[in-house]
Nucleic acid binder design. Structure first.
Lengths: 412, 412
DNA sequence: CTAAATTTGTTAATAACCTTTACAAAGTAA
DNA sequence: TTACTTTGTAAAGGTTATTAACAAATTTAG
């Protein structure tokens, strides 16, 4: 008997559900709450937990005993006395299990293993050979990588509780299916979660890699503390991770943030099609920026001058920092377009912060000029910050999601 | 001792909070849950509630007695027997209290009163005289209107539990301050909630009127059942209500959805300033559309033809439906710009539905042509629907928010 | 150096809540 | 009229959390 939401005359329900509530749920809820407090207040005593939770001392005692029996809490021995009996310090047992994060890139596979505090214990990476890019082969590589990493920290693979995989394409997180990944040949409607769960035997989350980077920056990067922000990844491709009200926003077809096709101020747009490249991506994707550089060079007839003709976007930006006039024009060009895009999104979403990431986007000079352009506006000018995690953002985001998923299941 | 969210090494917390959980909370939670079930399953018996909730019969009995003592439940007498003792039917007592909704327009004040089922009992409206547009005067009008409506349904004003006020401007919902309302003279940083709560003595929510319309359409309009959608209000002004994951999205500065300043494909933009009108609003606001009509007319030298020169936007659209070629061009013009705006927002947010509302926007012809333009795209083509509540959307949204706020406080 | 005060933590008694079991009430079906 | 079904209440029992009392271990005061 499902609750009908659309026909009901009752207003939109708040996020709180009301499940059948029995006394035993109390115990679980309290244990969960105490565990969370313990994780947030590193080493602390039962007395601290009593103060933090507002629960009575006997309740805390009994819950701690329960958590200890589950091996989720460690005793650290006596702490400093503050004028009385010294407290027995407790700590969340971060080694109770581990979680893994994976980034499937266009050319390589990267993995990390972290403990339940999110501390990254070890990493592993490998370049793809051509035939290793099939979904099946990637799963096998993941299994091998996981084994290696477990050996590194001398733990059993059985202690790994969850894995989050970032894929470079539109991803249905609910079903765990990668709907399309243009950079990977033949990755259409790949049921990656089912494959991972079968091959590796782990609960898995499949996410878009840019979304993972956004989560990473929110967890321990430039976006820490922001409730609403947009992560813009500028590299070969252009995409965004939309983070609202403390969570990723995916949209109705899992394609929120696919801003590569965004129109550019001053140009008209055509119909959108999968086969074409988007205007924004053409303009300020890595290739677009390098193209602009070459255009300006040839216009100035400097194409003869040394090996400057074929520079990567970041190298051009570096030149601009060194004072090269032409390179500065390229930065201005990119920043202008980027700022236009940011304004449009800000008018709609009014985010607190914009994080620029990706190989091209995280360059501080681009960030500086973009922000300078935005301050001319009287509104729709969010803070602009460069990614602080760089290429590690995705992997950190993967760990963050795995931790959240694990946390919910540590106490059934 | 506040929990620090940014320095913590724990992943972003799920929306579930873990408050100190005492046994008495169980009772409250169960009562709340049962009341919700009762509201969703209109008249039903205790036995039905037992089945729906999964709780035991004595618990349901006791909770029902409790709710009845609070006058939140009505007994309807015996129902149909299904082969045994006939059940005693129960119903949520929608007359236990009332909630009010207000729409502050540019020229008039409208109010509605609804019972706790959201059934609208009566309405009231008044045109502003010039001096009645001050915040203080509006509050007085609201008090008078509320009294009138209470008399209409012969109830005491004391039974009104909550009021939600829609203002035509940027609104800080947390503090209840109207930050700016261009259509109302001298409405800058008006602490409207404090004023309402003092003048009328009711808990109040202050919201942007377009946001309220979005909530209304979600509650009992074209957007019913949609998790993510955008309500676009096209009238004299142009604005949007952003509705994501079942809730309004406000943004960091309460200005999410201020899309009037959005750039238009093919034109370049200048710096944004409060004093100027936005490109989008200039183009497809009511005045923009009427201007386009006149432009085309004069170009065709038909300006002499009757009184056609000065038509309202909706009248032009009506002409297009009747087959007028020039009017059809105006519709095409507006739809083209609107579709461009929708595409941009869809690339970012991927909403399920776009609702077109407001005096100009809800015209079915505009809706039809806009949708036609969108289907040329291979993606970023949400469903486009006309508002089904029309001018009543805001007021319905106000009632919806008041109900939600009340529901949370019916059981302390 | 001893006693009081303080802080930490446990044990025992009490109250609140939900559930199972038993049973009463009021109908339908044979 | 009897058996069966459904609805609803009452009593007993089991968890859970709280308060109160107390034990343990240390600092502070005299």
């Amino acid at each position: 008997m499902r609750l009908s939401s659309s026909t009901s005359s009752v207003p939109p329900e708040p996020p709180v559900e009301a499940p059948p509530t029995r006394p035993s749920h109390l115990r679980q809820a309290n244990a969960r709450g105490l565990l969370r407090l313990l994780r947030e207040h590193s080493p602390c005593s039962k007395a601290d937990l009593v103060r933090l939770s507002g629960l009575s001392a006997p309740t805390v005692s009994s819950a701690v005993a329960y958590l200890e029996s589950l091996n989720l809490i460690e005793k650290l021995g006596e702490g400093e006395s503050s004028g009385g009996r010294p407290p027995e310090m407790l700590r969340f047992n971060a080694g109770h299990g581990y979680v893994a994060g994976v980034d499937i890139g266009g050319t390589r596979l990267r993995m990390v293993l972290a403990d339940l505090n999110g501390r990254i214990m070890t990493q592993w990476a490998t370049q793809f050979t051509d035939r290793q890019r099939t979904p099946k082969a990637v799963c096998t590589l993941m299994r091998d990588g996981l084994r290696k990493m477990c050996q590194d920290v001398s733990t059993s693979t059985k202690k790994v509780l969850h894995i989050t995989v970032g894929a470079p394409g539109v991803t249905n997180v609910d079903s765990g299916i990668v709907l399309s990944a243009p950079n990977l040949r033949d990755w259409n409607s790949v049921p990656l979660r089912a494959m991972v769960e079968q091959e590796i035997g782990l609960a898995a989350i499949i996410e878009n890699d840019t979304n993972l980077a956004a989560v990473g920056e929110h967890w321990r990067g430039s976006a820490a503390g922001a409730k609403d922000f947009i992560f813009i990844a500028l590299g070969t491709g252009v995409g965004a991770g939309i983070f609202l009200r403390g969570q990723l926003h995916h949209g109705a077809n899992w394609s929120a943030g696919e801003i590569g096709y965004t129109a550019i101020s001053g140009r008209s747009r055509q119909a959108l099609s999968f086969s074409s490249t988007g205007q924004l991506e053409q303009s300020i994707g890595g290739l677009g920026i390098e193209g602009e550089w070459q255009k300006l060079l040839s216009r100035e007839r400097r194409s003869s001058s040394g090996g400057l003709a074929r520079l990567r976007a970041t190298e051009i930006f570096d030149l601009a920092v060194d004072g090269d006039r032409l390179a500065a024009q390229v930065v201005e060009y990119a920043a202008q377009i980027l700022a236009g895009c940011i304004v449009e999104m800000s008018l709609t979403l009014d985010p607190e912060v914009i994080i620029l990431g990706g190989g091209v986007g995280s360059h501080p000079e681009l960030c500086r000029i973009t922000e300078k352009l935005l301050v001319r506006n009287e509104f729709a000018k969010p803070q602009v910050r460069a990614s602080s995690l760089g290429t590690q953002a995705q992997l950190n985001g993967a760990i963050s999601l795995s931790l959240a998923a694990t946390e919910a299941r540590l106490l059934t």
